[in-house]
Amino acid sequence: MFSSRYWKFFFEETGNIARFAGRLFSQWGKPRYEIAEFFRQCYIIGYKSLPLVTLTTFIMGLVLTMQIRPFLVDYGVESQLPAMVGIAIVREIGPVITALIFAGKIGSSIGAELGSMKVTEQIDAMEVSGTNPFKYLVVTRVLAATFMLPLLAILGDVVALYGAYLGVNMSGVTSFELFWAKVFKYLSFSDVLPAFVKSFFFGFAVGIVGCYKGYYSKKGTEGVGQSANSAVVLSSVLIFIIDLIAVQITDVLNLN
C-alpha cells in the first residue's frame, strides 16, 4: 500500500517527535521557570480561542439535535432527545470537535509562529540573550495547550448543550429545567471523567506537534507555511488516534 520510503518517513517522524517530547519532559521541571510566559500563552491559547470554540460548539449542538430528532420521532422516543444528545456531546463530540477546532487555530499558529522565528533567527537571538529558547517557547506553549484545551472542552460541552436546548425547542416546547434534568439523568461521572482526561492528551498533542513542526521548520517562507499546515494535519490525526486509544481504555476499565 505504501512504499518503504513512506514507512521510513513515518518512523523517523514518530521517533523525532518522541525525542522532542522527551526533551520537554526533561526540561519542564528544571529552573528557570517561565511563569510569566506560561500565563501569557494561556491567555493567547485559551482566552483568545473562546469565541471560535463557543460559536462552533453552539452550532454543532444545535445541528446535531435537529438531525437526530426525526429519527427519534419515528421510533416514538422523542422525549429521549436531550439524554441522547447530552451523552453524545459530553462523551465524544464536544471534546473531539473542540480539539479539532483547537488544532486548526492553535496548532497552525504555533507552527507558523515558531517557524517564522526560526527562519528569521529570532530563536538564535533568544539563545544568545541568556534564554533557553526551548523552555521559553516550547515548554510554555505545550503546557498552556495541555491545560487550556480541557477547560475549553468543558465550555464547549456547556455551549453545545445550550445549542441542543434551542434545537429541542425549535419543534416543540421543553422547559430549561426539564431539558437539563433529562441530560443529567443519563449522564454519569464515568461519562464526564474519560472525556475530560483525554482532553489533556489532545491539548498536549496539539502543543507538541505545533512546536515540533515550527521549531524544526526548514528555511524560507515556504517552510513556515509547511510547518503550519503539517502541524494541523498531524495533530488532527493524532487527536483521532488518541480518541481511539481512549475508548479502548475506557472499555477495559468498564467506564462505558
Binding site: S116, T120, E121, A125
Partner: peptide, 28 residues
Amino acid sequence: IGFLFQSNALYDSMTVRENLEFPLRRHS
C-alpha cells in the same frame, strides 16, 4: 559578546522597548 544578526532577529511580537529590555532581563 554582542551579535548583530544578518536578518536582525528582532522579536516580531514585542515592541522596540521590549526587544531592547529582553537581554537585560534575561541575563539575570
